[in-house]
Design a protein around this nucleic acid. Structure first.
Length: 207
DNA sequence: GTGTGGATCGTCT
DNA sequence: GACGATCCACACT
């Protein structure tokens, strides 16, 4: 599986501007290697969670619990947790130690290991929803809480810059999904996605 | 295409 | 004991 691309360095994740990182993650390739099986694709949808001052964040008010502890680690690790009792979610921890910022990976455009992803998702036929939505991304890539807090410099879960870029015109910037309870913070333009990409979950009409 | 409800459990109050 | 950074199937238009 040798290729000419290298892992994105830790410095990329240690940027304290989580919204900027969420935007810059669009177009980056995300991979997992589990039991020798490599799966991945490029990120087409993200959401920023702005730590202590963001009501939608698990770390709002600097809340530190066994679950949220991972968010307080230095940027460049994965924060994985269970939602609705069913779905695992993958987040990229951003900034420095004790700054609990993270970016939720909501969708990828699958590129490598389609057959493996299809099998993990129990799909008879490959459809866009194979990696549409955060729960689906984690399931297709085999991501679970067993690898919570793993380094993105590992050979199990990592990101690469393969030179794919999108201009601001090609990226929609809209409010996040499913965070109505966060009151005014629910309106913040912290969600980014590639306009017109078929893997984006719930694209906003007209954008 | 749109809307509704069921699944299912860890985490924190 | 309540609820969540969700997904899917199925009904109905």
């Amino acid at each position: 599986m040798a290729n000419s691309f290298s892992k994105i360095p830790a410095a990329f994740y240690q940027n304290p501007n989580v919204v900027e990182v969420a935007r810059n993650l669009i177009g980056k390739y995300l991979f997992t290697r589990l039991d020798g099986l490599v799966t991945g694709g490029y990120i087409v949808e993200t959401e920023a969670y702005n730590g202590p001052i963001d009501r939608a964040s698990h770390a709002y008010g600097n809340k530190r619990t066994p679950r949220t502890e991972t968010m307080f680690m230095p940027g460049g690790v994965a924060y994985i947790y269970l939602c609705y009792g069913i779905h695992e979610m993958l987040n990229i921890v951003v900034s420095v130690e004790d700054e609990p910022l993270a970016v939720l990976i909501r969708a990828i455009d699958p590129a490598i290991g389609l057959d493996v992803m299809q099998s993990r998702r129990n799909m008879a036929v490959i459809k866009p929803n194979i990696t549409m939505g955060p729960g689906s991304v984690a399931k297709a890539l085999g991501i679970s809480r067993k690898i919570n807090a793993i380094s993105l410099q590992s050979d199990t879960l990592w990101l690469e810059d393969r030179g794919l870029t999108f201009t601001d015109d090609q990226i929609a910037v809209v409010p996040r999904i499913g965070v109505d309870y966060a009151k005014e913070d629910a309106l913040l333009p912290y969600r980014f996605y590639v306009k017109g990409n078929p893997y984006v979950s719930r694209p906003v009409k007209g954008k």
